[in-house]
């Protein structure tokens, strides 16, 4: 979380809204542990990471959707989730993310 603060400060100073995605659970092998954090500004700038890179694109899309809906959601990526097969982790694990607007 700490590593994304400077970017969040910059975005907020410019009046841009921010979404945060955090790894809240990993099953099997996962590239990043719980707590890994990515911040996304409303114009699609990204700070931090939640995987080795394999699901980052999909997470940005979720973050922008969450800024639109203003409602937190839990997203799951990995082989155990049929809907997410297209963005499955190369390591074969499953990662659960909480994606939410930074409105708290």
């Amino acid at each position: 979380m700490k590593e994304v603060i400077a970017d969040i400060d910059r975005w907020q100073a410019a009046g841009r809204r921010v979404a945060i995605a955090r790894v809240i659970g990993v099953e099997g092998s996962g590239p990043r542990d719980p707590g890994a954090t990515m911040a996304v500004s409303e114009d699609g700038e990204v700070a931090g990471s939640v995987s080795g890179g394999c699901v980052e694109g999909a997470v940005v899309a979720e973050a922008l959707a969450v800024l639109e809906s203003r409602t937190p959601r839990v997203c799951t990526f990995g082989y155990s989730d049929d809907e997410a097969l297209a963005v499955g982790l190369t390591c074969g694990g499953t990662v659960h993310l909480l994606v939410e607007p930074l409105d708290w």
Binding site: I5, Q12, I24, V74, H96, W104
Partner: peptide
Amino acid sequence: MSGELYRELRAALLGDEPVVLATVTYV
């Protein structure tokens, strides 16, 4: 815009002070 909770968390993190964030992830 972020509010009081983020302000507290941010201040603790930047000050290298211990802090815990508890978030509901399932209801």
